[in-house]
Design a protein around this nucleic acid. Structure first.
Ligand SMILES: [Mn+2]
Ligand SMILES: [Mn+2]
Ligand SMILES: [Zn+2]
Ligand SMILES: [Zn+2]
Lengths: 140, 140
DNA sequence: ATAATAGTTTGGAATTGTTCTAAACTATTG
DNA sequence: CAATAGTTTAGAACAATTCCAAACTATTAT
């Protein structure tokens, strides 16, 4: 029942974004949104799909991640060159980045404030402020 | 004269980092450090070298950028997936990122403060805090 | 239902930025 | 002037991502 619920809410969210609720998009949406806040690479999501016996191509995983990002269901996080993470938490927040493992952890925006943000240069507006707190294992 | 000066100071800086002052490293160091604060990709630096008739391979540009970063002459900045910027300003500071052009502009750390930085997770220490203020052209 | 249309998916090729490799070269030291 | 260790290089290899054109599917119109 909860499953049906979230299913139709997912369909509604896709439609709201002008995206047809296809088999692939629904399957990926469930993997993404039915497990709380997540930070995934395209490759990780594709692996999860395979493990769940969802047949979907790599190209579609990329297409879907970008489409979801465009309609505000996801947010892209850049912390290291060479790969993008997609974040199911689209609220304003920041991140711890664990260099050792490549994991991301949310920092709610009320736990970290950026003060004295300077004026953006002439003719531009601020799109977003990203704070990445890079942490390393304490060497013993 | 100023040229000789900076030349020998560059040599000294390389030696301090345990790097031999080779023709290629000196040429790249001059391009990097004789023009104020800069934010360059490997490819941009390689193009500048070619334009200045400095013959140096792509592999050496990458090697050099990473070696300079390791010894503290440069700092790596990640703002978009797929390519790294190298920053000649190694002081503590943050960045405006112009999505339209891919340019970076420094924000001195006294112009932007991060407050209420949360405790790092158990067993880790904060390595660095990166703030990227993404700006876009004001649509008219 | 059916057909027409527009949107979607797909495998594989292509592209991009970066790293690797092993052979040739060069700075430093004795 | 060796001998040595460090450096450079072209090109191959690699990883992540994007592109492509053909096959497929959801939606809309009849
Ligand atoms: Mn992207
Ligand atoms: Mn690097
Ligand atoms: Zn997050
Ligand atoms: Zn900078």
């Amino acid at each position: 029942m909860a499953k049906e619920r979230s299913y139709s809410s997912l369909i509604a969210r896709l439609k709201a974004g002008g995206l047809r609720p296809t088999r692939q998009r629904l399957a990926l949406a469930r993997l993404l949104f039915e497990g709380g806040d997540r930070h995934l690479t395209a490759e990780q999501l594709h692996s999860e799909a395979e493990e769940s016996a969802v047949r979907v191509s790599v190209a579609t995983v990329y297409n879907t991640l970008h489409q979801f990002t465009k309609v505000g269901l996801l947010r892209e996080v850049v912390v290291e060159p060479g790969r993008s993470y997609f974040d199911t938490n689209v609220d304003d927040h920041h991140h711890f980045y664990f260099e050792a493992t490549g994991d991301l952890q949310d920092i709610p925006s009320d736990r970290l404030r950026v003060r004295e943000l300077p004026e953006p240069p002439e003719g531009t507006r601020i799109e977003r402020v990203d704070v990445v707190v890079r942490v390393r294992n304490l060497e013993t």
